[in-house]
Design a protein around this nucleic acid. Structure first.
Lengths: 211, 211
DNA sequence: GGGGAGTTGTGACAAAAATCACACAATAGT
DNA sequence: ACTATTGTGTGATTTTTGTCACAACTCCCC
């Protein structure tokens, strides 16, 4: 039983029809993650599909030697595609997911998946759409790493951050370097250039995106 | 109506139960693609889900300036995840799929998706598994490009080729360079090194993978 | 048997990015 | 107010990768 009413669920997830919202209201479980807490980590198994109601989650890939690479954000109204896939096969996750703010989530136990798929068409439309958009997003990530130089990748990275977190980005050069698997010095120099063209404004611990 | 019997369909797709195989036998359409033909290209809209019965399909990403990056193969018994996502594409850079051999495919018209999802649990299990495995594969591709140097990426590339196409790889250095978005000279030099360690043996137009 | 197209080998050089070394500014904590 | 920590700026150097130039080699075809 969720904390949210059927109506509230439909407001957050417009693709759901009312029968589905009702079902999720009944059988889903609300959970709040503190800012900074880990929703998902390599090797973890899933018993729930996770729907983001409020807050923001950052997903990134971890390399064998502790490298990181930022993949994408989960925003309110979206679902964690990986939780659904892994759950379906009781497979372990291979990425990290961290709450950037206090994040409210509806967790749907995996035992209901068959019922949902069978009886709620708007559920599997939602599932397919979730997969599709994440897959598409992964493709754009591949484009960037495979085809672009650091300066373009940095620009694209900052744009994405600004799009979902706002134009005032509380990021240090080191954090950025981690996210795009580069080094602090390289990022510093490139940011300097971007500041000269007016694309960003820099302050200590933060960057303002001017677009 | 497919060329394949219900039984044959089940043999190629072991996850399907007999009711599903029967349905696909009835409503699917068989199609054979010649070696080298394009199954999927930028900007295309899909009216069918595509299941690979025989043959081999290569998927790769195309960049804005004609660069390429090899993603993965589709093998018999698998499905094209992207075709299932029935997406309307808008972006300029997207995915190419090319038959490497004569390839036999079952095409299921999109109009049956709802019925399949609703009435055939083994269908959506198959769909989810298809998405999951492709997503997982994309993640390993990201790992390689983001974290590894050319020599390791080349090694991994050849290993994957050998795994699905056999140990005798009919590839020129130029083709390899295209697939991993590098240059012919770089590939030549790295291959030379790999030959010295005995990991491969080189001949004109082909490379033997010794593992 | 002599082009010609496609493939491979290699040195020299250029460009991109990572690494090293260090200076210095801002801030937090005591 | 003083020190320790963290964040930023910048030159010098190295590593990795891409580019250019060119030679040689194989194969096919006439």
């Amino acid at each position: 039983m969720t904390d949210l009413s059927t109506n509230e669920i439909q407001q957050h997830f417009p693709l759901f029809d009312s029968a589905l919202a009702e079902f999720i209201h009944e059988h889903g479980e609300s959970k709040v993650f503190e800012s900074g807490s880990v929703l998902m980590k390599p090797g973890q198994f899933f018993k729930y599909a996770m729907l983001i109601v409020n807050g923001r989650v950052k997903l990134y890939r971890e390399g064998e030697e502790g490298e990181e690479y930022f993949m994408y954000f989960l925003e309110p109204g979206s679902a964690c595609a990986l939780s659904m896939m892994c759950m379906a096969r009781s497979q372990s996750s291979t990425v990290m997911a961290i709450a950037l703010e206090e994040t409210e989530i509806i967790m749907i136990p995996m035992q209901y998946m068959d019922t949902l798929m069978r009886n709620y068409p708007s559920w599997y439309h939602f599932v397919i759409e979730t997969y599709r958009s994440r897959f598409e997003e992964m493709l754009t990530v591949v484009d960037q790493i495979a085809f672009k130089n650091m300066d373009e990748r940095l620009d694209w990275y900052l744009k994405r951050q600004a799009d979902t977190l706002g134009k005032n980005l509380m990021l240090t050069h080191q954090q950025i370097a981690n996210d795009i698997n580069s080094s602090r010095e390289v990022v510093s120099r490139l940011l300097k250039k971007m500041e000269k063209t007016g694309r960003i404004t820099m302050e200590r611990n933060s960057i303002r995106w001017n677009g």
